[in-house]
Write a protein that binds this DNA or RNA. Structure first.
Length: 851
RNA sequence: GCGAGAGUGGCGGAAUUGGCAGACGCGCAGGACUUAGGAUCCUGUGGGGUAACCUGUGUGGGUUCAACUCCCACCUCUCGCACCA
């Protein structure tokens, strides 16, 4: 379906070429021009206001997909628009180059991850350049470059010195066949995604970033990002982050155990229900379990159950619909509040890593406890009565988790439950039974990966001195290039003696390197800051450049990174601030999350077979058409339904724009300076000019206020339609020439952020020197935008009955009178009592009548 | 289950602060040009009715002179979280 754009033949020696819209010629011409003139290079200019626009950089998987295209089109509009608004714009691009697919490709195709990645980068860079994005390519970076990750290693060392990095044993998904750790999302139905072998839990020594130390600040700043609503972060991303951090306030309490010298410490957010705690449950991993059940009749059974649970992968383990299973430990605790003897249980739904790994169980006021108690016949005790029908233990079919008044709660009986929470915590602290405690759902960030293709962790283990960071002078710890990949997929690093064997930075003795690499989310947690000074060698950041450009004024990317990447980057920013590298609390002042690209009702994916390749579109229609359609079909934050007809429509529009040159050929034969008089003689000139200025206003506001490019483009389409309908009063008349020239120039300027190539071409053909991107954004004249005549809507009892053309600025009474005098209106009003006349200035008159 | 968002013609979508519902595009129909048109240009296009007019933004109610927009209840879809004590 290649469009046939062989328009009519032009007589008189002009080549056909010059008059038909031939995107490829135009686009390559201007891409070359921009490159040769270094058009988009950014340099710090303290006298100019800066604007840092960033799109989420891609993983170099091989080729650009439509999701990237949409993301980068949105970003490019904003970057180009801001540039024309006079900002000094930084708009960089780079590569999130470490990661698993490179390693998998290496094993599969017997290539090197580095060369595979290099090849992909080269190809994708060409694709992006072919799209005409206004990147400053001199700032391109790749995270796999030792000159990049050396600073990551430095930051790691500084974090280590500050206690923000630590090592601990933690359970991981492990595939025994592939001999590697799997991320949670790589475990499918309990099996390895690659070989389907059952995944086991394995305890491994891992490095962790202490993100929990920043939990409160990350939470607090959520509100500040939100406070700048409209220009800040989308509400739902903030909500997701808040939920992820999951702050909960409660209390930790010791429950003594009968015949045992250590108490069990539990955490609860519901101290108001503590008098109803009729049992205690431990997680299977609870450290006291073995000791507690030692010698009990069912010891072996319980320990076997606990061991079985340890082996279950985290996904299954924490699934909400998993059946609750437990065993009585055979021992009893004392509820210190009631002095009652209550049984101790072990159950699969209690998680070792949250709170204290032990809970008090209140079946009457917690649904999970209720189900568990019913299943195992554990007694219930109501301690909160809601309004209305009183709760009875025997007849309850579900827990009452809501509000109420305390009963059976000693001195707290009669108190409202919200009030009781604080009172009981205070009581607890006074008695020394426990203390107030804040818990987070957020866990420290495990960053060790048993993988080759990542940034090496700069740690050595010395036989004499123990665990030590690599000395700063020895950075970077470079990933060895010469490698043989074991066929089973495990990392080659541990077996590479040249790499592993090193000397201790302290005693000079024999030492071994850590052979894990860092999670690739670490690289993407600071790349935005490195873009301000990619070539700086004295440290990770050039303080002058960083403080000039940061924070990112507008970040654009997919919603799928709403939690992990954005939370990590926020955390890392605060860490870098506290290490003295940056002076910055938050990395991204504003965030725009674009919707997915959909085709036939589903997200584009290889498995669905509904993928559209940008290359095919570019060769068929050109980059400008692809850009235009991705921006026109829906507003950025919504999903975009791909439509071949819609793409053709966009192409048709651009051809139509280009043919304007032909229509106004006779006017534009002699480009010259046109002066526009304040008052125009001809009505059609006046009207065209008014529409030009109204369009400038509309497009400016749509971009500026809400990034609604679809309506901005629609307005330009209307202007183009008006130009087609426009007939000059007399050919080549000066006034007409001037008006048309302004109109065509405005079309080019207004289009330039969206479809820069054709805009440049138009601009040049209108007789201007090349470089539309350096032009100031057009301004509208307020007095021209005002209409002299308006359509006044006249309603009777709220129903539209007439539209009348009136002059815009008479006294209010006049519009009312005109409305009442209209024939069509008189018909409805005659013989009735006019109760009220509502007048909305310059818009509407509503006459309220009664019969 | 909890949280967030959405529901408007045949389709993508517009209506910015409660004030003309359906901008713009696609599709469709008619016309012009043409040997031809799947190119281009013009016109029309929510539904019903010859018409005056009636009706219409997921459903039902409410507030208002006036509701796609605000309030209450419900239905459907999408996304996120989901045993976190």
């Amino acid at each position: 379906m290649i469009p046939n754009y062989s328009g009519h033949k032009v007589a008189g020696g002009k080549t056909e070429m010059s008059n038909k819209y031939s995107p490829e010629n135009i686009e390559l011409k201007w891409q070359r021009y921009w490159e040769e003139n270094a058009s988009y290079q950014a340099t710090e200019a303290p006298d100019k206001p800066k604007y840092y626009l960033l799109e989420m950089f891609p993983y170099p998987s091989g080729r650009i997909h439509m999701g990237h295209v949409r993301n980068y089109c949105i970003g490019d509009v904003i970057a180009r628009y801001k540039r024309m608004q006079g900002y000094n714009v930084l708009h960089p691009m780079g590569w999130d180059a470490f990661g698993l697919p490179a390693e998998n490709a290496a094993i599969k195709h017997r290539t090197h991850p580095a060369s595979w990645t290099q090849k992909n980068i080269a190809y994708m860079r060409r694709q992006l350049q072919r799209m005409g994005y206004s990147y400053d390519w001199t700032r391109e970076l790749s995270t796999a470059d030792p000159q990049y990750y050396r600073w990551e290693q430095l930051i790691f060392i500084k974090m280590y010195e500050r206690g923000l990095v630590y090592k601990k044993k933690s359970p991981l998904n492990w595939c025994p066949s592939c001999k590697t750790v799997l991320a949670n999302e790589q475990v499918e139905g309990g099996g390895c995604w690659r070989c389907d072998t059952s995944v086991v839990q394995k305890d491994l020594e891992q490095w962790f970033f202490r993100i929990t130390a920043y939990a409160d600040e990350l939470l607090k700043f959520c509100d500040e990002l939100h406070a700048s609503a409209g220009s800040g972060w989308p509400e739902r991303v903030i909500t997701m982050q808040k939920n992820w951090i999951g702050k909960s306030e409660g209390v930790e309490v010791d429950f003594p155990v009968i015949g045992f010298n250590k108490p069990i410490r539990i955490f609860t957010t519901r101290p108001d229900t503590i008098y109803g705690a009729t049992f205690v449950i431990l997680a299977p991993e609870h450290p006291l379990l073995r000791e507690l059940v030692g010698g009990e009749p069912n010891e072996e059974e319980i320990l076997a159950f606990a061991e079985g649970e340890r082996q279950v992968d985290r996904i299954t383990r924490t699934a909400a619909d998993r059946e609750k299973v437990g065993y009585p430990a055979g021992r009893y605790a004392i509820n210190p509040y009631t002095n009652q003897r209550i049984p101790i249980w072990v159950a699969n739904f209690v998680l070792p890593e949250y709170g204290t790994g032990a809970i008090m169980s209140v079946p009457t006021h917690d649904q999970r406890d209720f189900e568990f108690a019913k299943k195992y016949g554990i007694p219930l005790q109501v301690v909160i009565q809601p309004q209305g029908e009183p709760l009875k233990e025997e007849t309850m079919t579900a827990a009452h988790e809501g509000e109420g008044v305390l009963v059976n709660s000693d001195i707290f009986s009669g108190m409202g439950n919200e009030e009781a929470k604080g009172a009981i915590i205070e009581y607890t602290e006074n008695r020394g039974w426990g203390e107030r405690k804040v818990n987070y759902r957020l866990r420290d960030w495990g960053i060790s990966r048993q993988r080759y293709w990542g940034a090496p962790i700069p740690i050595v283990y010395c036989e004499r001195c123990g665990t030590l960071p690599v000395s700063e002078a020895d950075l970077p710890v470079v990933l060895p290039a010469k490698i043989e990949f074991p066929a089973d997929g495990h990392s080659p690093l541990p077996e590479m003696e040249d790499f592993v064997n090193t000397t201790c930075p302290k005693c000079g003795g024999r030492a071994a390197r850590d052979t894990d690499t860092m999670d690739t989310f670490v690289e993407s947690s600071w790349y935005f800051a490195r873009f301000t000074c990619v070539k700086y060698t004295a440290g990770p950041f050039d303080p002058k450049a960083a403080s000039y450009w940061l924070p990112v004024d507008q970040y654009v990317g997919g919603i799928e990174h709403a939690i992990l990447h954005l939370l990590y980057a926020r955390f890392y920013t605060k860490v870098m601030r506290d290490l003295g590298f940056l002076e910055l609390d938050e990395p991204f002042s504003a965030l725009l999350t674009q919707g997915m690209v959909i085709k036939d009702g589903a997200k584009m994916s290889k498995s669905k077979g509904n993928v559209v390749d940008p290359n095919d579109l570019i060769s068929e229609y050109g980059a400008d058409t692809v850009r235009l359609f991705s921006l026109f079909a829906s507003p950025p934050e919504r999903d975009l339904e791909w439509s071949e007809e819609g793409v053709e429509g966009s192409f048709r529009f651009l051809s139509r724009v280009f043919r304007l040159l032909e229509k106004f050929d006779f006017i534009l034969i002699q480009p010259k300076q046109f002066d526009l008089p304040n008052t125009l003689k001809h009505l059609q000139n006046k009207e065209l000019r008014r529409q030009v200025h109204r369009t400038i206003k509309k497009v400016t506001e749509d971009i500026e206020r809400r990034f609604h490019f679809n309506t901005a483009i629609a307005a330009i389409m209307e202007l183009v339609n008006a130009l087609y309908l426009y007939e000059p009063p007399a050919a080549a008349d000066d006034e007409a020439q001037a008006v048309v020239h302004e109109a065509l120039g405005s079309v080019a300027l207004l289009l330039s952020p969206f479809v820069p190539h054709i805009a440049e071409e138009l601009w040049e053909r209108l007789g201007n020197p090349p470089g539309i991107f350096e032009q100031p954004w057009p301004k509208y004249q307020d007095d021209l935008v005002m209409l002299e005549k308006i359509t006044l809507v006249v309603q009777v009892n709220g129903k539209l009955r007439a539209r009348i053309e009136v002059s815009a600025n008479p006294a209010p009474e006049e519009h009312k009178t005109m409305a009442l005098q209209d024939d069509r209106i008189r018909k409805y009003v005659e013989g009735k009592h006019i109760r009220k006349v509502i007048y909305v200035p310059k818009k509407l008159v509503n006459i309220v009548v009664v019969a």
